[in-house]
Computed example of a mutant assay.
Amino acid sequence: MTLEAMRRAEIARLNDHFRFTGEGGWTYLSRGVAALPIMAKEAAIRAVRHFADFTPDNDPHGEHDCALLSVGEHRIMWKIDYYPHNDTRDHAPDPADPATTKRVMTIMLAGEC
């Protein structure tokens, strides 16, 4: 495995851990998701937490940082962005380093992109 492949695998591992636990960052719901009935909102969050259907088509860089899925009648998109741990204005220099990177996930309706 190349150094770059190992780096991407570590980013994917960190993203999966964050997505499942919420540790190491913040999660935001878009207005559309926040306005869903509680059961639909909970189903969307649970689907994002447990998403594992990554393919080269929906995850070309192998970092598990974005996906589109169906939850009931809703198309949900989620994405993870990276920021310096202490400043959300600039991108983090290395998303493979959890000591310097805060992950921010946004869960939205596909039509809100």
Rank of each mutant, 00 (worst) to 15 (best):
I11Q: 00
P56Q: 04
E10D: 15
Y83A: 02
A9F: 00
H85S: 07
F51E: 04
R7T: 13
R49Q: 13
M77N: 09
A9P: 02
H85W: 12
S30M: 08
E73A: 13
I80L: 08
A34V: 03
W78T: 09
A9W: 00
H61V: 14
V71K: 00
A40W: 01
L68G: 07
P37G: 06
Y82M: 07
A9Q: 10
S70V: 11
D57K: 11
L29E: 07
L69G: 09
P56D: 09
G24W: 03
V48Y: 07
D59C: 08
F54R: 05
K41H: 04
F51Y: 08
L14A: 04
A47V: 02
D57L: 14
F20A: 14
E63L: 09
W26L: 15
R7P: 01
Y82C: 03
N15W: 01
G25L: 03
V71R: 01
N58Y: 14
Y82W: 07
P56I: 08
A9V: 04
S70M: 15
R31N: 06
K79N: 04
Y82L: 04
F20M: 11
Y82I: 00
G24L: 05
H50M: 11
A12K: 03
G72A: 03
I76C: 02
A44M: 04
R8A: 14
R13Y: 05
C66I: 08
K79H: 12
D59M: 05
L14S: 04
L29C: 06
E73V: 10
H50D: 15
R75P: 02
A67K: 03
G72D: 02
D65Y: 01
H64G: 12
P37M: 07
H61Y: 14
L14T: 00
G25N: 01
P37Q: 08
G32C: 04
F18K: 02
R75D: 09
A12I: 06
K79L: 14
A34F: 05
I11R: 00
D59S: 09
H85E: 10
G25V: 00
A12N: 04
I38E: 08
K41P: 00
C66T: 09
D81C: 12
R7G: 00
L69K: 08
H74A: 10
T21H: 05
D65A: 14
F20N: 08
S30Y: 09
Y83N: 00
R75M: 12
P37D: 01
H61S: 15
F20P: 05
E23Y: 10
H17K: 09
A12Y: 03
I76K: 02
A47K: 03
T27H: 15
V33I: 14
A52C: 13
T21D: 05
S30C: 14
E23Q: 15
M39T: 09
R8Y: 12
G22Y: 15
D57R: 15
L36S: 02
H74K: 06
A40C: 05
H64K: 10
M77I: 12
G25I: 01
G62M: 13
A52E: 09
S70F: 10
L69W: 05
E23D: 14
L69N: 05
E23W: 11
G24C: 10
A34D: 06
G22L: 13
R31P: 06
G62W: 12
P37R: 05
E73R: 11
Y82S: 03
D53C: 09
S30G: 13
L14C: 12
R13I: 05
H61A: 13
P56R: 06
